[in-house]
């Protein structure tokens, strides 16, 4: 009988070591893994919020039209009607938050138009392209065209 007990005892020690090791693993894991890990998948759910935290640089056209309704409306029916403000005026979220904080610079009419309208082989053929030397002897475009509604009126 005593002989049987000794055999059983060495198994108990093994089990005890395994149980302690497993408990230690559970405790350490609970301490290291954040609570929100695995809520949506194999990642920390808080990372979604981290990615949301970045401040805006571009305000979006809706914010512009809150104050500059007149300019937005002046484009109606023109070729630039659907071009949003910040495409030419640059990122202006700081200005939209507080107009006194950032005074937008007026785009240079000699270069801003050419960003899009300079002729290039790779541009779609239907897109209006203009060689400024040939077309107007390098005069700035706003000499004749209104940037917000560039089509020239007849007469």
């Amino acid at each position: 009988m005593a002989h049987d007990f000794r055999d059983f005892e060495h198994l108990l020690r093994l089990v005890a070591i395994f149980v302690v090791g497993f408990a230690l693993f559970i405790v350490v894991r609970a301490m290291l893994v954040p609570d929100d890990f695995g809520v949506y998948g194999h990642f920390r759910a808080g990372a979604l919020d981290d990615n949301r935290q970045r401040p805006l640089a571009h305000a979006g056209a809706a914010a512009c039209s809150d104050c500059h309704d007149d300019v937005v409306n002046s484009r109606a029916g023109g070729g630039h009607e659907k071009v949003r403000c910040e495409a030419c005026h640059g990122p202006l979220a700081a200005h939209a938050d507080d107009p006194s904080a950032q005074a937008p610079e007026l785009p240079n009419p000699g270069t801003v138009c050419l960003k899009c309208h300079l002729p290039a082989m790779a541009k779609p053929a239907t897109f209006p392209q203009v060689d400024p030397t040939e077309h107007a002897d390098n005069e700035p475009c706003d000499t004749c065209h209104l940037p917000h509604s560039p089509r020239l009126e007849e007469g």
Partner: peptide, 11 residues
């Protein structure tokens, strides 16, 4: 809002 690239894409 839309993405910054889509916001400024003129075409």
């Amino acid at each position: 809002l839309t993405t910054a690239c889509c916001e400024v894409c003129p075409t």
